[in-house]
């Protein structure tokens, strides 16, 4: 608990200095009654919660996270009162298309679980098949252990987890899964593993590996964003970077996303496509301004229709 407190305390003190929180709040966060027990950091929890709520859409996920939080809270309280309590297995399955917010939510969960005193560090390590599967006997186990070690105290996020079992008999994917399960057992209190990927593939993968089901009791399904949500995500991304979309630029974005949604594989795109369009637009705007004579402050902010264009995912 000591280190956790010290880390957080520094952050809280900086916030007091920058007038982001009041002395009263700081005292409550550092010395408040939750704090007396397990290194719970209400400030960090509140921040993660705020960030989660600020995400566009994802209503079912927000609700699930709230339920998870309530569950953890009550188990912790029961433990404190010396009552029977769950060991709490927090490994999860995230199902959904790319760019639907899985990684974003995983990172926020890391922060939240750290704030709740359940993870020592709360960082997220993102890996995929190539990071886990080796080329010769023994290599795979070694690679898995290495990644687990990096993720200790935080979240191990395995993208496209089913690709671990895609090879045939001679594939080392199975060894990866077995080692992972063993490592999860050995580091029960210091690691949360999240298996992520397309819904159908994940469902199939879990059916093929029934042993995993009980080890990953929490399932979250990330739905595709609606067109409206995607445009609001774009607005948010521009806003965060201190840019602003002109109405006709927004219209163009809308039409462009609508086109993509109708004629492209639904499984592509989503927020990741939006992010690429946003980043591309920012580069386009720079090039456009660079050619221009004098540049006003307004010019620096505004994203015009011509800055918005199609990009690859």
């Amino acid at each position: 608990m000591a280190r956790r407190l010290i880390d957080n305390e520094r952050v809280i003190m900086q916030k007091v200095e920058r007038a982001e929180i009041t002395p009263s709040e700081a005292i409550r966060y550092i010395y408040g009654h939750d704090q007396n027990t397990d290194g719970i950091n209400s400030l960090e929890i509140a921040e993660a919660q705020k960030e989660l709520l600020s995400l566009i859409g994802l209503e079912n996920i927000k609700k699930l996270v709230e339920e998870l939080q309530a569950y953890i809270n009550i188990q912790q309280r029961r433990k404190m009162e010396g009552m029977a309590h769950d060991g709490m297995t927090l490994h999860m399955i995230f199902k959904g298309n790319p760019g639907t917010g899985k990684t974003t939510v995983a990172r926020l969960l890391g922060k939240m679980l750290h704030g709740m005193g359940l993870l020592r560090i709360g960082h997220t390590v993102e890996v995929e098949r190539a990071d886990l599967v080796g080329e010769y006997i023994g290599h795979t186990a070694q690679k898995v252990r290495e990644q687990v070690k990096r993720a200790l105290g935080g979240i191990l996020f395995i993208d496209e987890a089913y690709s671990l079992s895609r090879g045939g008999e001679r594939d080392f994917g199975k060894e990866a899964i077995d080692t992972l399960v063993k490592e999860m057992e050995d580091n029960k209190d210091d690691l949360v593993a999240i298996l992520a990927g397309y819904k159908d593939e994940m469902d199939y993968f879990m059916r093929m590996n029934p042993g995993l089901r009980s080890r990953f009791p929490i399932q979250m399904e990330f739905r595709d964003y609606t067109l409206d949500e995607l445009v609001r995500i774009a607005d948010l991304m521009f806003d965060k970077r201190q840019y602003s979309l002109l109405p006709d630029a927004r219209n163009k974005l809308y039409v462009l996303l609508a086109g993509k949604q109708s004629n492209m594989d639904q499984r592509m795109g989503n927020a990741r496509l939006v992010r690429n369009i946003v980043e591309n637009a920012i580069r386009k705007q720079a090039v456009r301004l660079h050619k221009q004579g004098s540049i006003s402050k307004e010019d620096l902010i505004v994203i015009r229709k011509e800055d918005i264009e199609e990009v690859d995912v």
């Binding site: 003190m13 007091v16 200095e17 009263s24 005292i27 010395y31």
Partner: peptide
Amino acid sequence: GLIGDAVEPTTLRKAMAQTISFIK
């Protein structure tokens, strides 16, 4: 001396932060 709200200037807030953290 501590007060409930954030005050000006920064040096004063910093001094308050020092006191808050010293309480432990």
